[in-house]
Design a protein around this nucleic acid. Sequence first.
DNA 1: GCTAACTGCCTCATCAATGTAGCACTTGTA
DNA 2: TACAAGTGCTACATTGATGAGGCAGTTAGC
Lengths: 183, 183
Amino acid sequence: MRADATRNLERVLRTGARMLADDPSATIAAIAAEAGVDRRTVYRRFASREDLMAAVYGARYDAVEKAVEAARLREAPVAVALHRYVEGIIAVNRAWPVETSRMLREATIGERRRRLIDEVDAFVARATDEGLLRSDLPPGWVAAVLPSLMEHAAEHLSELSAAQAADVVVATLLRGVGTPQAR
Amino acid sequence: MRADATRNLERVLRTGARMLADDPSATIAAIAAEAGVDRRTVYRRFASREDLMAAVYGARYDAVEKAVEAARLREAPVAVALHRYVEGIIAVNRAWPVETSRMLREATIGERRRRLIDEVDAFVARATDEGLLRSDLPPGWVAAVLPSLMEHAAEHLSELSAAQAADVVVATLLRGVGTPQAR
DNA sequence: GCTAACTGCCTCATCAATGTAGCACTTGTA
DNA sequence: TACAAGTGCTACATTGATGAGGCAGTTAGC
């Protein structure tokens, strides 16, 4: 593939991720226009709308898997792993701001998805065993709440670096936002 | 208005809320079918798709305003007000499960929206002043995180009552999910 | 039971998005 | 520089959703 073609493909993917996150029914025409590319060019790379979305989701999953791997959720000390994981995912959320709720329904990525969920679930279990997380929580509560914390951090704390935003998220997750007296 | 007409209107609104929350681009035809009503009947009540969505959002806002009022965010002791507020909103989320992120962009409800935001912001400020919430948090962080906690509680903790789910949310918000040792 | 309100069904025009095609042109690369 | 890869533009068929009209039949409420 030629260099400019690669560049265009990249632009379409990035722009598509951003616009589809903002509005899942964004049209191909709008995405192409925003990416500074002809609509026809998009169709040359992606056979259909579905295809483009699958590619965007795939790109995000690549990044997420990388972040999870880097966090070493199985071996690293739980506190360290948690922080690295959160920081990594916040960075991914910024690079590939896909609207996760809609993505999860796509069957395209069922297998990869299950693997990641298992990975995180196992980590939560380990963190609970090792005394980092309370054990009296409703099952799945942490796994449900954490992603949306990271999503909010990614977009709401835009003036902070990923590491700083991760500090806020981890502190909020573990200690909450109440004062010591309020406990 | 005749009684059965009122009933149908109610069904359309409820069904519309549920389906649009699940997929904002749900068609009028699909909503009508799910509500057990002809597509034409929907159009008799609502001039357009926009109209229906505005009505759904309006219904949700009615409920939210009621909950906020009942929580007495200005006068009641902060801990009490917080709990009542959370419980009320969780109930609203279950009754009118609108996808908030998309709703907030609608200009239709700009004024009502601003009033509610101000109300909650003022409450957060008071809760901070009175020592319930930490004062070293990024501005707007609590106001950003709390709604999504309540949303998750509404749908994820479906086996709990609104009051029980509110316990979990408030505990998570104030004290986090970490063990005392992990702090 | 009668009337007016309300509904279901079929039909139609319109519009916007999808996906395809051919042609002239620019641009990377050897 | 020459060639091949890639793009922009214009046009077109298709599909699906929106919104409206008419009419026969049903149902609530007096």
